[in-house]
């Protein structure tokens, strides 16, 4: 077997030492620090990204809080405006109603006054007519002439008794 031929033991050993030493130096000085660097860099990047994501999340939460606050403010404002409008409308309605009521009262009062005047006029007319009728009745029935004034007085007194 060629493996047990001691003729080539020495060169193999020498070259094994040379090549393995070269490989060891290349790996430990060049390749491994390089891969280590890449891995460390990646880890840093991932950590950085995580931190940034955290910050973004916080920011988003703040924005959300602000938005909710704005919404709440707007709602409060709207409610205030609504209440004010409702109050205004109520006040105006009340004012109008009051005016209307006053107008109605005036008209009623005027109408009542007219009615009263008409009534008194009618009553006066009635008295006059009653006096005349009484005088005529007296003349016709009793065949006595009664003075118009006396008849009117009598009617007055009777009306006073009746009313």
């Amino acid at each position: 077997m060629p493996q047990f031929n001691p003729e080539y033991f020495a060169p193999q050993l020498v070259w094994l030492v040379i090549t393995f030493l070269a490989l060891y130096l290349l790996m430990s000085r060049l390749i491994l620090p390089r891969i280590n660097g890449i891995l460390a860099q990646r880890e840093d990047r991932i950590d950085g990204n995580l931190q940034r994501a955290e910050a973004l999340k916080e920011e988003a939460a703040q924005v959300l809080a602000g938005y909710q606050k704005a919404i709440a403010d707007a709602r409060a404002q709207a409610q205030a405006a609504l209440a004010k409008a409702a109050a205004d409308i109520a006040a105006e309605t009340a004012a109008r109603e009051a005016e209307f009521a006053r107008k109605m009262a005036d008209q009623t009062a005027a109408a009542e006054a007219g009615i009263r005047a008409a009534k008194t006029r009618a009553l006066a007319d009635v008295r006059g007519i009653a006096g005349e009728v009484a005088a005529m009745m007296a003349g016709k029935v009793a065949d006595t002439s009664v003075d118009a004034n006396a008849a009117a007085e009598a009617v007055d007194s009777v009306m006073k008794e009746r009313t």
Partner: peptide, 12 residues
């Protein structure tokens, strides 16, 4: 010391 460059050395 025999340090001949052989096919073994080449493949190393």
């Amino acid at each position: 010391l025999d340090v001949s460059f052989t096919n073994s050395s080449l493949w190393m």
